[in-house]
Amino acid sequence: MTSIQVADDAFVAASVSLAGAVVGDRARWRRWWPDLTLEVTQDRGDEGVRWRVGGPLTGTMEIWCEKRLDGFILHYFLHAEPTTALPTEPRAWMDATAELNRIRRVAGKAMAFEVKQTVEGGRAAGEPAARKAAIA
């Protein structure tokens, strides 16, 4: 089992065809994960991207956009190990890995909310799903 395990998702009320331009934008990757080195292992277009992760972590990461109802579910997965040594004392190890997981979970949520905000284009709750991007 890896020390860092993040799995999260968010519903986006927009056409999945709008996801590719945002999720595939390498400049956004730099903002979302400034300390990570990302190597694309599978570009799935509108359905997402899979990466090999380097830098302070080594492992894999994925964004998967799954068409659902009138929008899509943005799934985010990160499975990695820190490249610096973790404490060996059990309690200290648990505290350290919990904090590393929290940091990566928060970064994943920020990414998901940016994708949601960008492709929904200011859509109010209860309105139909966005079909055209308001990509900024």
Rank of each mutant, 00 (worst) to 15 (best):
M1P: 09
S3N: 14
S3I: 01
V6I: 15
V6C: 03
D8M: 13
F11S: 00
F11Q: 02
V12N: 01
V16H: 05
L18H: 03
A19L: 02
A19D: 02
A21G: 09
V22P: 03
V23C: 04
G24Y: 05
D25V: 00
D25E: 11
W29I: 03
R31G: 10
R31T: 11
D35R: 14
L36H: 08
L36M: 04
L36R: 04
T37P: 00
E39H: 08
T41M: 07
T41K: 09
G48N: 07
V53K: 04
G54V: 06
G55C: 02
L57K: 03
M61G: 01
M61N: 00
I63D: 08
W64A: 13
K67Q: 14
K67N: 04
R68M: 06
F72E: 01
I73W: 11
Y76R: 12
F77R: 11
F77K: 03
L78D: 02
L78T: 05
H79L: 14
A80T: 06
T84K: 13
A85D: 15
A85E: 14
P87C: 08
E89A: 14
P90M: 09
A92D: 15
W93T: 11
D95S: 08
N101Q: 13
R102Q: 09
I103K: 13
R104M: 14
A107N: 10
A107F: 05
A110R: 15
M111P: 00
E114N: 05
E114T: 13
E114D: 15
K116C: 07
Q117K: 12
Q117D: 14
Q117A: 14
V119Y: 02
G121Q: 10
R123F: 06
R131V: 15
A136M: 08
